[in-house]
């Protein structure tokens, strides 16, 4: 027995135990990673996460640095603020009615969310629960809209909403002796100039999310509701939507955030005045005077503007994640 173990030990020493001595820390780590690939994956995960967090969070940190730096020290800003001036967060509200801009943003977001959820629910019901010819191409066409760059719509919609588009009314020249025109409504400086394009642009994603959710509610439940006395619409609102609550919440939150973050239409469909329904963008840009550009105030305003959405995401994140994955992982 003793000789046996001795021999095998010798053999091991001869082949295996010498080599680690020549290895540095990196090659050791490499060889152990080859033994356990999970280590390598975990390391990659940490690297990717740290990189992602850095690129996402650094701008926020930079905003905070800017916001806290007093105006006269705004040159050569480093990684640490050149002073400490929390009064910027108050000054923002003194220079412009920033709370009204925020209120406008909230109202625009909520209006759009309600419209989108209502219409996308009906569309989601049709796409998720009914069978009809041309369903797949129609769904694709709707999704294709969401891939269009919003800027492509800007000029035609601006013309339309400023009342510059006139449609000739056919036959009026025969009846009244002169050609009559129907002018597009003047929606500039009203919420509708923003809510309408927002609703159209953000609808496809909500339709898609709600379609997957409504499609998974068992037919029997809808049948039961209809037998019990609802119409198809009643069954949608009393049974299907309550059971798809995570999906509806996801669609709603995503729509709200998209509207809150939107720039083009928010900037161009009003004159930037708080009383003319300009959202946050108007407030931040409105801080800019004719002779100065108060970066510290704009940074402070940005941070204030981000807060409601940050809170919403933190509160709703579990629902959003479960909502987005529930569609993918059926049952």
């Amino acid at each position: 027995m003793a000789t046996d173990t001795g021999q095998s030990n010798q053999q091991n020493t001869g082949i295996g135990e010498d080599r680690p001595l020549k290895r540095g820390p990196l090659s050791k780590w490499v060889s152990s990673s080859i033994q356990n690939p999970e280590r390598a994956y975990r390391a990659m995960f940490y690297v990717a996460t740290v990189f992602f967090l850095f690129t996402t969070l650094f701008p926020f940190y930079w905003l905070l640095v800017l916001a806290l730096t007093p105006q006269n020290l705004l040159t050569n800003v480093g990684l640490v603020p050149n002073g400490f001036n929390p009064m910027s967060f108050v000054t923002v509200f003194e220079r412009v009615p920033f709370h009204i801009y925020m209120f406008n943003s909230l109202v625009l977001g909520i209006m759009t969310t309600v419209i989108v959820l209502l219409l996308a629910s009906l569309a989601g019901y049709v796409f998720g629960r009914l069978r009809f010819p041309g369903k797949a191409p129609m769904m694709l066409a709707i999704l294709a809209i969401s891939y269009f760059p919003p800027a492509a719509f800007l000029i035609p919609l601006f013309e339309l909403f400023t009342g510059n588009v006139a449609v000739p009314l056919l036959g009026t020249s025969l009846v009244f002796g002169e050609q009559l025109y129907l002018n597009s409504p003047d929606l500039f400086n009203t919420p509708w100039a923003m809510v309408l394009p927002f609703s159209a642009l953000f609808m496809p994603l909500s339709i898609f999310i709600l379609t997957t959710f409504y499609g998974q509610i068992p037919d029997g439940l809808e049948d039961a509701a209809r037998i019990e006395g609802t119409t198809r619409l009643g069954a949608l609102f009393r049974v299907i939507i309550p059971l798809s609550a995570p999906g509806v919440a996801t669609a709603g939150v995503l729509t709200f955030i998209s509207v809150y973050n939107e720039f083009f239409f928010s900037f161009l469909m009003n004159n930037g005045e708080a009383q003319n329904w300009a959202p946050l963008v108007g407030g931040i840009i409105g801080l800019q005077g004719q002779f100065d550009t108060p970066y510290h105030l704009m940074a402070a305003a940005s941070i204030i503007g981000v807060l409601p959405v940050a809170i919403l995401v933190i509160v709703a994140q579990e629902k959003i994640v479960s909502g987005l994955t529930a569609g993918a992982l059926k049952e």
Binding site: G220, D223, A224, T231
Partner: peptide
């Protein structure tokens, strides 16, 4: 809803 019927389903279909 207008037929005066009630139904019990195979998969029970309680809400």
């Amino acid at each position: 809803k207008d037929r005066g019927i009630a139904m019990v389903f195979q998969n029970i279909a309680l809400f």
